[in-house]
Each structure stands twice: as structure tokens, then as C-alpha cells.
Design a protein around this nucleic acid. Structure first.
Lengths: 115, 115
DNA sequence: TATATTTGTAACCGATTGGTTACTTAAAAT
DNA sequence: ATTTTAAGTAACCAATCGGTTACAAATATA
């Protein structure tokens, strides 16, 4: 039973569920009502989400309120962060190109500012 | 064949592969050499990674160099970003507590600065 | 040319996934 | 007390996943 956050957010339905209950906690039926799939199917997704800590369930009478607890997403964020430099290289290239343009412009006015 | 980035990075081996070739492109055998699993298994992972655009293959003779192209990770980052405010709430609470402390201290010196 | 190396790919396998229906339990409402 | 409602759960199913071995194709080397 591999239950890490990466696997939990791999499924689009689970990402939608997170999107739903991040705004406000909902009971299971309310969540299920937003999807075409059956209630037990949603219940299974919710189990996976609780097992990896992204959702906590609060009992209220016969209802179960599902509440997003997204701290674990920080793991994903941390993993991503180490690669940001790679995927933003192109953007950086564009940026330095634009900076180059600025510099060229600036040269006309102030030659000192070039470094 | 659902092949989105979320699903691609869900597998820990694939995340390791990304970690490997992000530093420098490697041919398939070199990548496979780093894992306990067979070469065809790695080849399959690589196919998934190329299909969702996280890796590109460059032919060089009989070798295939696998190169990370991590732009797609921005999708994941963007999805995460909308929730950062939630998972950092606790941190924010701590921060505002500290700020409150600062303010309380400041009151001794300058009552005006409180707003 | 014959041989070795790198890779792709097909066929197979067991486990997991994402879904279903049917049934049970527990709480609320009548 | 009976009925309705909310949810858990078991049993099942087809498809996918992550792996294997075996073989084929293409390039490089002896």
C-alpha cells in the first residue's frame, strides 16, 4: 500500500476533491454529489487522501465532514523546487535577453551603468 | 493511456530517473545501470516520461541519450501554488504571532506604530 | 564478415487501480 | 418503533502498472 502524496495527487478526481473541500469542508455525500461516479468510489478516493494525510475526517452525527489538510503538499513543492532552475532556464534566457535590450538602450544615456 | 505529468511523477523510480538525467543526459544503459530493475523496465519508464514531455531522446549512433526537459513541471507547480496559502497557514499563524510579539515590544517605544 | 553492443518490443505475469453493486451499520426523522 | 439517511465495506470486474524473459534490429568493433 504505497501511499505517498505524489501518488495521491496523481489521480485527477482526487485533485478535484481537494479543490472542492479546500474551500470548505463537506460531508461525503456532498462531495459525491459533485461527481458522476458512485459514492463508494468517492469514499475510496477519500480513504487514500486521508491515508496520506491530505484530508482529515470529522464525525458529526451520522455525517463525516471531509476537511483538506494540505501540509503534505509541501513535500511535492520541495521536490519540484530543486528543478525549478531547470524548467525556468528558457524563461531566464528570455529575461536576460530583455535585460540585454534594456542595457543596450541604457548605453545611449549612461555608459557607466553597464557592468 | 492517461499521460499527464502528475501521473508520470507519481512513480518513485521515475522521479529518480529525472533526478539522474537532470544533471546530465545519459544513454539508456547508463540509466538502467543505476537501478536494480531490468533495462526494459527502465525503457518503459522512459517511454512514459517522453510521452508526457518530461524527457526527450536524442539518437547518437546506436545510443539514445535521455535528456530532461522539465518545463511541464510548471503545471504541477501551478496546481500546487493555489494551495500554498492553505498549507502555509500554520506558518503564517506563527509569523503573525511573532509579529504581534514585535508589535507588543514596539509599543513600549512607540505607541503610534500600532494600527 | 562475423561478433558484440545498444536499444526496441512483444508476450506474459501478478498486483494495483478505479470503478461497480449489494449489503450492513448507525444516526435522525417520522 | 419504523423508516429514512449517511456512510462503511465486501465482493467483484476490467484495465493499467511495473516488472520479467526472450527475441529482433541496428550500429560499432574485431
Amino acid at each position: 500500500m504505497r501511499r505517498d502524496v505524489f501518488q495521491a495527487i496523481a489521480d485527477p478526481t482526487r485533485r478535484q476533491i481537494i479543490g472542492l473541500i479546500a474551500r470548505q469542508p463537506l460531508n461525503l455525500n456532498a462531495v459525491a454529489g459533485e461527481f458522476a461516479i458512485s459514492r463508494p468510489a468517492v469514499s475510496k478516493h477519500m480513504k487514500i487522501l486521508t491515508e496520506c494525510g491530505l484530508v482529515i475526517i470529522k464525525k458529526k452525527g451520522r455525517e463525516r465532514y471531509c476537511e483538506a489538510k494540505l501540509d503534505q503538499l509541501n513535500d511535492v513543492s520541495a521536490w519540484l523546487e530543486q528543478y525549478r532552475v531547470f524548467w525556468e532556464q528558457k524563461l531566464d534566457a528570455l529575461e536576460s535577453y530583455l535585460q540585454q535590450l534594456q542595457k543596450t538602450k541604457a548605453k545611449k544615456n549612461d555608459r557607466k551603468k553597464r557592468k
